[in-house]
Amino acid sequence: MKAKLLALLVLLPGTALAAEGGTIKDDTTLRAAPAGKALGPLTEGVLVDVGQRDGGWYEVTLTDGRSGWVRMMDVRLNEQSDDDSLFGGLLSWLNSGPQRTHSGTTTAGIRGLSAEDIQSSGNQDPQTVDDLAAFRVDASEARSFAASHGLESHPVDELED
């Protein structure tokens, strides 16, 4: 099983969307940099190629060749099917994994956590839940993980509804 997981994880794109298609969903502004100088307006419905993301900003390229940055929330990523995405290999692996036996209804090659699987979930050995403790880390391990990767705590207010 591990070998299969690896194979699919190698397929991860890792970087932000390799030029994925997007559509401007609200009138917005093309900028020279994230929150930078305005280059011009972009109207709803304009198609863009979406490159890297920097915080709340996407780098985009227009069909006329112009490029710049736009608020990510003003972009909607175009629909992609699982098949034509970079994840295709991963997904086919996940779909071809070992069959479930607990639900009693194994369907040809398709795996997935459905409502039926949950409804028919049998009573597991309580040990199954206890076994998760082996993965657990304590607060000090979490803190040293963060410190070794330069993650620092910041005061941030709760978001209002």
């Binding site: 099983m1 009573n123 082996a134 993965f135």
Partner: peptide, 18 residues
């Protein structure tokens, strides 16, 4: 948690889980 674990197994890769 028991209900969820009765519907799906955990990935047996300790590095990933940790």
């Amino acid at each position: 948690a028991n209900v969820l674990l009765g519907a799906a197994e955990v990935v047996e890769d300790e590095d990933l889980q940790r």
